[in-house]
Computed example of a mutant assay.
Amino acid sequence: MDWKIELIFVPVSDVDRAKEFYIGIGFHADFDSEPYEGLRFVQLTPPGSACSIAIGTGLGSKMEAGGLDNIQVVVADADAALAQLREAGVDANGVDEQEWGRFVTFADPDGNTWTLQQLPAHG
């Protein structure tokens, strides 16, 4: 049986600002709904990903805005990812070279931290 992670909640303080940020770095805006006052659900998907993120209000998260610091995403080219982020105005850290990959880190406007990993070449 397959177990597929398809949605990760990212705690933010300003939904519109966060939505604009994520769209600005290339995420696709899949869904934005406010079914009633106090509940807003926004789903965004990174390019090429089978897993989306959700931001919003009234979602029942116990995590404070900016409290997420453990999302890691695999990219084909760390240098290209860094360039894309910087072109979008994101203050991303330069490529960190390790034996187990090449890494770029950045934070959203609330301080939720992301790590992009280019896997090492197998050979």
Results as ranks from 00 to 15, higher is better:
E97M: 14
I55A: 06
Q84I: 01
V95E: 00
A107F: 00
D79I: 01
A18P: 08
Q117N: 15
L85T: 01
A80M: 06
A80G: 05
G60N: 09
L68I: 08
R86P: 05
N112A: 13
V15P: 07
E34Q: 13
T45W: 12
S61H: 07
P46D: 12
G38E: 10
I8G: 04
N70A: 08
R86T: 08
I8P: 05
D77C: 02
R102I: 00
V74M: 13
L7A: 04
D77M: 03
V73N: 03
P47L: 00
P46Q: 02
D91Q: 06
V73S: 06
G58I: 10
D30G: 06
A92S: 02
V95K: 00
D77K: 09
V95A: 00
V12S: 08
G26W: 07
Q118A: 12
D2A: 13
R17A: 15
T105M: 01
M63C: 06
L44N: 04
K62Y: 03
T115S: 08
G67L: 07
F103H: 05
Q118G: 14
A50V: 10
I53N: 04
F103S: 01
V15L: 09
D79E: 15
F9G: 04
V75N: 13
S49K: 14
I25M: 06
K4H: 06
F21W: 14
A80C: 04
F27K: 03
A83G: 11
I5C: 08
R17K: 15
G66E: 10
S33A: 14
K19C: 15
Y22P: 05
W100P: 06
F41H: 11
D69V: 04
V12G: 12
E97S: 10
S61R: 08
G89A: 09
A78D: 01
N112P: 11
V12I: 09
H28M: 11
R17T: 15
L39R: 13
I71N: 08
Q43R: 07
S49M: 09
C51D: 04
W3H: 06
V90L: 08
M63E: 14
L68A: 15
L59T: 13
C51Y: 05
E87P: 03
F103R: 01
S61L: 11
F9V: 01
K19I: 14
I55G: 06
Y36L: 14
L39F: 11
K4M: 05
F103K: 00
L39G: 02
W100H: 14
F21N: 12
E97G: 04
I23S: 12
